[in-house]
Each structure stands twice: as C-alpha cells, then as structure tokens.
Design a protein around this nucleic acid. Structure first.
Length: 351
DNA sequence: AAGACGGGGTG
DNA sequence: CACCCAGTCTT
C-alpha cells in the first residue's frame, strides 16, 4: 500500500468527517444521490437538500415513481437542473433495467444518465468497497500538488495523468474510508487558497511542497470575460391576483423549470403573444432590475409588473402555462433568483 | 478540445 | 469583485 494511502487513512481516523448524512447508512442510493448533489455544489449547501430528498424519496423506487415536477421542485435552488432530470431518468432506468439494484461495474454505472467516471468510482468505492479511484475538484487539487502535475486539469492530457496518479495511490483496503478521506483532505487541509501544509498528513511526499510551489498547482484555467445579456421578465397578474408562469423548454438555461414569460434573450415560446399582451396592457409598472451571474454570461432581468383587467386567452399547449397564487409559489420549481425577485416584488403589498 | 450548464461561499 | 466548488454531457 502506498505511503500516501497509509498516512491519509491514519489522518482520517482522527480528523476526517464521520458524521455526514450520506455516511449513515452508507448505501448505494444515498451515496449516489449525495454525489450528484455534490457536483459543483458545496457540502454545507447540499446537506439540507439531501435530508429533504431522503425524507421525501426514501429509496430509489419512491424516486422513480415520482413525477419529474416533484423532483425539480425539491431541487429548486441547487442549480444545474440537468442533474435533477438525469437523476430522475437514472432512477427509472435502474428500476426498469436492474430491478432497483445498482450495477456494480464501472462500465454499467457510466452508461446511466448523469453518472460519469468520478461519480461511478465514488459509488463503487463508498457503497461497495471496490478499488476504484475518483477525481473530483478536491482530489484534482490534492493530486496536482502531491505529484506536481503541470498544466490546467481541464485538458485531457492533464486529466489522464491525474487519473493515473489517483489509481497508483489507492490503498489495498478500506476503500470507502479512503475515498472520503481524500475528499476531506482537499476540503479541509489542501484547500484552494491558504492550504494548511503544516497539518497535512501527506506533506512528506508532496512534490509541490518540496519545490516550495504549492500555490502553483493546479494551474488555473485561462480567464475570459463573460458577455452581458439582458431580458424582460413579465410579471403578469390576472384579476384574481394570480401570476402567470410557463414551463421552460427541457434543455438549456433553467430547463424544465417554471418561470414568468421572458422577452428578448432566454425567451419562451409565448414571446410573440406576451409582446402583444404587453403592448395592449394598461397598468404596467417597471420594477428594479436584477443582475444574475452564470458561469458563462451575466444576465440582467428587467421586470415589468402587468395587472390585467380581464383574463386573456392563453396560447400555449395545455399544461405548459399556469396561473398561480403567490402563496403556492413555493411548491413549484422556479429558478432561485426569479423566485426571490417575485417574493420581493409582491411582499410589501405593492399591488 | 471547448463550451454549456446555477448557485452559493469566500477572501 | 474574482475565484472556487464531491462533474457530466454535447458538439
């Protein structure tokens, strides 16, 4: 067994995290759900979502039987909604194809929607104790430093080196603990900024530390500036004070979520109809704009509040548009910034 | 090989 | 504000 793995396991027993909700019990369904939630999302954010999910969907059969809308509603606020759609598809596929039991090979797991190599490795190691590496953001950073691996980890060549290193350092036993340990090390000691090398159990073998160049690894991605985009957000209310929502297309930004009609960028199918409605409306009020940052562009939402004197005819297919009272908003899957803007706009009796 | 895909945390 | 985070999928 590598000295790296030995030192890491000994450190984990003393300083690792042993109380995360998905560790008790450490079974495939819970490990899988946690791994999907933890993609690009931090532990502290995930925990309350994980707890709510398990309470609502205690096993994979419950999840597979649920409507996608219920899953999206519980996911609202976590972002990357393709994860929730894949999660739901994956649950149904595991039930249909494997009778609700997770497959135990890397190849079979990676066939499933939303499960890539790292998530498949995490499930095999944590739930089944198999000797399979993972490579998430924390592990990438730990290994890039430990092996002084040059280059930006986003490139295939660097990825390949890191996977090889991850494989080479695996222990002969205790795979579940080891997998948790290397993530804990990245999260609490080998952090992105101000790493605590004095507390690091594997400092004796760390190549970057030996070069006194820990901060040089991993090499950051080349930076590029984000384009600015903007859109009208139409907060349309009928005479009963209900708000009009429309289901967004399944793919793309906020895919499958409910959202008031948008004009301009990110527009919905009803764009033309909404434009006409806007042109003929009499009571229109501008609300303060909201800025929202995505990974790849900045979005400014410019809300208009529109109070209708009569019910208009809706133009979309049934089930794609919805009048909702403000009090039932919380049960629907809306983008978090949009939800906040609506609550803010209507909270102080500003009708 | 590069881009799409959210939202929250941190210094 | 800039950067980071328990990645995967598509083109």
């Amino acid at each position: 067994m590598s000295a790296f793995a030995q030192r890491l396991l000994a450190w984990f027993d003393q300083h690792g995290r042993h109380d995360l909700p998905w560790q008790h019990p450490r079974e495939a369904y819970r490990v899988w759900l946690a791994e999907i939630m933890l993609q690009q999302t931090q532990v502290a954010t995930v925990i309350p979502y994980f707890t709510r999910f398990i309470a609502r969907f205690p096993d994979i059969h419950a999840l597979a039987a649920a409507p996608l809308d219920d899953v999206l509603a519980l996911w609202s606020g976590l972002g990357y909604y393709a994860r929730a759609r894949n999660l739901h598809r994956c649950a149904r596929q595991i039930v249909a194809q494997y009778g609700g039991t997770f497959p135990r090979t890397l190849e079979a797991l990676m066939e499933l929607p939303g499960i890539g190599r790292s998530t498949a490795g995490a499930i095999l190691a944590q739930a089944f104790g198999q000797r399979t590496p993972i490579l998430d953001g924390n592990v990438r950073r730990v290994l890039a430093r430990y092996g002084a691996v040059p280059g930006w980890p986003g490139t295939p060549a660097v990825q390949k080196r890191l996977w090889q290193l991850a494989e080479a350092l695996l222990p002969d036993e205790r795979m579940a603990d080891y997998t948790q340990a290397i993530m804990d090390l990245g999260a609490t000691v080998c952090t992105a900024r101000k790493p605590a090398c004095v507390r690091c159990p594997v400092a004796p073998g760390c190549a970057a530390l030996a070069q006194n160049a820990v901060a040089e690894y991993p090499h950051p991605r080349s930076k590029k500036k984000r384009p600015q985009r903007h859109a009208r957000l139409l907060l349309i209310r009928n005479p009963q004070g209900q708000l009009l929502l429309e289901r967004r297309a399944p793919l793309g930004i906020w895919g499958g979520l409910w959202c008031p009609p948008l004009l301009g960028e990110l527009h919905l199918a009803s764009g033309t109809w909404a434009q006409i409605l806007l042109d003929t409306a009499s009571r229109v009020r501008q609300l303060p704009p909201l800025r929202h940052a995505f990974t790849h562009f900045d979005l400014e939402l410019r809300p208009l509040q529109i109070e209708l004197d009569a019910m208009p005819e809706l133009i979309c297919e049934p089930g794609q548009q919805l009048w909702v009272s403000l009090s039932t908003l919380s049960h629907l899957g809306l983008p978090a910034p949009v939800r906040r803007l609506i609550e803010q706009s209507f909270s102080l009796g500003s009708t």
